[in-house]
Computed example of a mutant assay.
Amino acid sequence: MSGPVHAFLAGHGRDGAGRLLADVLAFDDARIEGVHDFIQWCFPLREASRAVPGAPVLTPTEADAIRIDPAAIDGLRGATARMARFYEATDGWLRPYDHNHLRITRILTALRDLIGQDAAQEFFELVMKRVQAAGSPVNPDSLTYWKRTLR
């Protein structure tokens, strides 16, 4: 493993709270909503988290290692599927401002950078389907960030 995020996504390493990816994927929706230090491990970015100090920052070497490791890609896809289920099953994020809007931006960015544009586009379409079905309650700035992430 090239680093801690890679090991976590591949299912062998633990996040900053000592959890395996399998532990996080088993969270119920209330824990997904209420726990704020897992998303940075499941969807790592090249920039530091402003919400969770000390969260991992994805290095270019680690990103390359994740991209070529089928186990890490499977882990990332598993995390994506779990978050998709959360956004499909819950409505609390369907309001003008919510911390989940930042999570969605993070997810789209990580998918684009680590799996590819198609994976990010697919997640975006799932989220937008829910937004539109709810009468488009999400603020325009969040929607703009999400669309920009796809470019």
Rank of each mutant, 00 (worst) to 15 (best):
Met1Tyr: 04
Pro4Phe: 09
His6Trp: 05
His6Pro: 05
Ala7Glu: 15
Ala7His: 03
Phe8Tyr: 05
Phe8Ala: 00
Leu9Glu: 03
His12Leu: 05
Gly16Leu: 05
Leu21Gln: 04
Ala22Tyr: 07
Asp23Thr: 14
Asp23Trp: 12
Val24Arg: 09
Phe27Glu: 06
Asp28Pro: 03
Asp28Phe: 02
Ala30Gly: 00
Ala30Thr: 02
Ala30Ser: 00
Arg31Leu: 07
Arg31Glu: 15
Arg31Tyr: 10
Ile32Phe: 01
Ile32Gln: 01
Ile32Trp: 00
Ile32Thr: 00
Glu33Met: 01
Gly34Arg: 12
Gly34Asn: 11
His36Tyr: 06
Phe38Tyr: 05
Ile39Ala: 02
Phe43Trp: 06
Phe43Asp: 05
Glu47Pro: 15
Ser49Asn: 02
Ala51Lys: 00
Ala51Ser: 02
Val52Cys: 06
Pro53Ser: 06
Gly54Trp: 13
Ala55Ser: 13
Pro56Leu: 07
Thr59Asp: 01
Thr59Pro: 00
Thr59Arg: 00
Pro60Ala: 07
Pro60Lys: 12
Asp64Gly: 15
Ala65Leu: 02
Ile66Tyr: 01
Arg67Val: 08
Asp69Thr: 12
Pro70Asp: 06
Ala71Tyr: 13
Gly78Val: 09
Ala79Asp: 01
Ala79Leu: 02
Ala79Cys: 11
Tyr87Trp: 00
Glu88Trp: 04
Ala89His: 08
Ala89Glu: 06
Thr90Trp: 01
Trp93Pro: 12
Leu94Thr: 02
Leu94Lys: 08
Leu94Asp: 11
His99Arg: 01
Asn100Cys: 01
Ile104Asp: 03
Thr105Gln: 04
Arg106Leu: 08
Leu108Ser: 11
Leu108Trp: 12
Leu108His: 08
Leu111His: 05
Asp113Glu: 15
Leu114Ser: 05
Leu114His: 13
Gln117Tyr: 14
Asp118Gln: 11
Gln121Asp: 03
Glu125Ile: 15
Glu125Ser: 07
Leu126Asp: 03
Arg130Trp: 10
Ala134Thr: 10
Ala134Cys: 13
Ser136Tyr: 00
Ser136Trp: 02
Pro137Ser: 14
Val138Arg: 06
Val138Cys: 11
Asn139Ala: 08
Asn139Phe: 10
Pro140Tyr: 07
Asp141Gly: 13
Ser142Glu: 07
Tyr145Phe: 14
Tyr145Thr: 13
Leu150Val: 09
Arg151Ser: 10
